[in-house]
Write a protein that binds this DNA or RNA. Structure first.
Lengths: 363, 363
DNA sequence: GAACCGAATCAAAGCGCTTAGATATTTCCT
DNA sequence: AGGAAATATCTAAGCGCTTTGATTCGGTTC
């Protein structure tokens, strides 16, 4: 287990210079076939594995991309998680350690998967870092020092810290395009999605008393709310139920809905800012004995897996999450070749997914 | 976007030597407080981010661990995937690109998650690499050059390639402990699990005609089969249905079960080698109009999320997957400190999870 | 056979950081 | 105040690789 063999050892064994060894691995066509085999044989016998540190230092590029994957489930302010309303199970209690909370892949998981797949497809190494809410910045900086480009989730890290990193290497962020100029962004067409789902409720199901609800004010959610309002106005529906936005976590979504149930002032539909919000809403409604979609329709936004399996299944707007991840990788690699191009905001299309919770029939 | 600032720039700006800059970041207590602040200020103004390549080269350690995550779903021989028998959905067709196959986290996903969480908790950087079945070895070698230790899934990579890597850096493998001496292993107590589930069928449900079935002969599966046999023998149950093991994929599990259905020679229970096998079995049975568990019981092994949600829910033996991932990281870090200790085989406990598919009632 | 040429190989200069060991500075005694 | 001991900082030598420009080599051409 002594310190492993280096180019020097291989070179000596093959009777060539270290330059030739390097060429053999990086630009094989520059080396005469016979020499190449000699070197490869020596490398093989020695069990030579090139040091990425040395290469990275010499080339000025590490050849790896980074993903800063913030775990929302570990976030104390993250709310009740995704499991509300899902089928319970005899072995659930005490199984937390083993991933009960993660029965389904979450939004971030699916995007992360896209990043992984695209990196692998392109032979790029991928460093995934996580917070560790304690020392997010230290972790981020550590990752930044290891990679050529970085993909991050919104609000996983302070803006200034991110800006600082972005001065050194390309950074691409999901959503939040309005803030953080100076880096690329991948977003989805929130407006179209929210409009489509609102119009469907109005025209498809003849509902007019719609209420928008969501836990967090984010760029995405704001755009959705805006489009929701627009769709109501366009349809000539007057806003009986004011959009509710228990922003900042003052009032949780659950509490808000619970109150509404008690007051008996239910709208005809809850248009939720996200699927996770919708799951919470449906959970509360079930507990209060309110039938979905009979008494009230519920819609989400995102298209996470859990919404597909829950009963009633969740009508939603699906974001192309895997593709978003892949796109981030593409943007990063592009940016490495063209550092001076102006920052890009790539807006990906969404798709209305009609399921049971709005009143549609499953096929 | 010029090449970023280095220790030299920071040193110059702070009016100290580069050594002091380095100390400020690595061993702050060795630097006088006033100097430290000077350096940190300079670093901050310059947007200094230490280069991990340079550090790795100088220290002989990269400070990162690697995970070689083979994607079984991309494996052409991987069989029908996990979705057999799961609820279908209006938006399923054509949605493949967006992760339909991964509606639930698979075994590898949960283990990977454990690796990630433990790395993050310990402030370790984590490199996840994937095959790319084409050039697995190249990818593996690339990763190996970047990390201090490597975690791999069984049979994701040729044994010799792995052995070669293991000569250079610590490697820990899931399962397969019988092969590949010379590296650490994390396994589970397959024997206890298989025995427990078999005994439950015999004593709990009074079944005597049990049939073992699984797609792949692996160390894990062999141990399970062995314990299955042992449990039958111990219970004095004679083996009416010979353990069926369509090894090597000659006959797929699906075909085997289909044939059995047609012949009308059903056992009282299918004891499957893995949950994925069990899902396939249940899918075929459903298609053949055979009621589970009324006409035949089915059990799995692993405890993947899908088995919890499918109806009837799947009785199985749960592996502590997240913990296995965490354990791999622990072993790796241990091994770095104690290279000469003999290789370890860590056998983690499993837990019998009774659900509907064996005939038990959900609570 | 001298002059020349392309191809193959090599020598050497870093890349940005860590860390012994040397040196400068401060602290604390007597 | 003088000097030893403790502390703070610096000098300089790598770490293993890439890559430019120089050198060597085996042939061609005239």
């Amino acid at each position: 287990m002594a310190k492993g063999p280096t180019v020097y050892h291989v070179a000596e064994r093959a009777g060539v210079s270290i330059a030739t060894v390097s060429f053999t691995f990086r630009q094989p066509e520059k080396v005469k076939a016979s020499t190449r085999e000699l070197v490869l044989a020596a490398a093989d016998e020695l069990g030579y594995v090139p040091s990425a540190s040395a290469r990275g230092l010499a080339r000025g590029r590490t050849g790896a991309l980074g993903l800063f994957a913030y775990d929302y489930l570990l976030d104390p302010s993250g709310g009740p998680g995704v499991q509300g309303g899902l089928p319970h199970d005899v072995d659930a209690p005490g199984d937390r350690e083993e991933g009960n909370l993660r029965l389904f892949p979450l939004y971030v998981d699916e995007v992360q998967r896209g990043v992984e797949l695209e990196c692998w497809r392109r032979g790029q190494a991928l460093l995934v870092g996580g917070g560790n809410p304690a020392n997010n910045e230290a972790v981020l900086s550590d990752i930044a020092g290891r990679v050529d480009g970085l993909a991050v989730f919104p609000r996983s890290v302070p803006v200034e810290a991110l800006a600082r990193i972005a001065r050194r290497i390309p950074v691409v962020e999901v959503s939040e395009s309005l803030r953080n100029r100076g880096m690329d962004h991948v977003t989805v067409d929130n407006a179209s999605g929210a409009r489509a789902i609102t119009e469907h409720l109005i025209k498809g199901h003849g509902l007019t008393e719609l209420m928008f609800i969501g836990a967090m004010p984010s760029t995405d959610n704001d755009e959705r709310l805006e489009a929701f309002r627009g769709a109501l106005a366009a349809a000539g529906v007057k806003l009986r139920h004011e959009p509710r936005y228990p922003a900042g976590g003052e009032l949780t979504v659950a509490e808000t809905v619970r109150t509404i149930c008690h007051q008996g002032s239910l709208p005809q539909a809850f248009v939720c800012a996200t699927d996770q919000d919708a799951l919470v809403v449906m959970d509360v409604l079930a507990a209060a004995g309110v039938a979905v979609p009979k008494q009230v329709a519920v819609t989400g936004f995102d298209g996470i897996a859990a919404g597909r399996v829950i009963r009633p299944s969740l009508t939603t707007v699906r974001q192309p999450m895997e593709r978003m991840g892949r796109t981030m990788v593409e943007l990063l690699l592009d940016r490495l070749d063209h550092p001076e191009k102006p920052p890009v905001d790539l807006k990906l299309p969404v798709r209305l997914v009609l399921r049971e919770s709005c009143g549609c029939q499953p096929s």
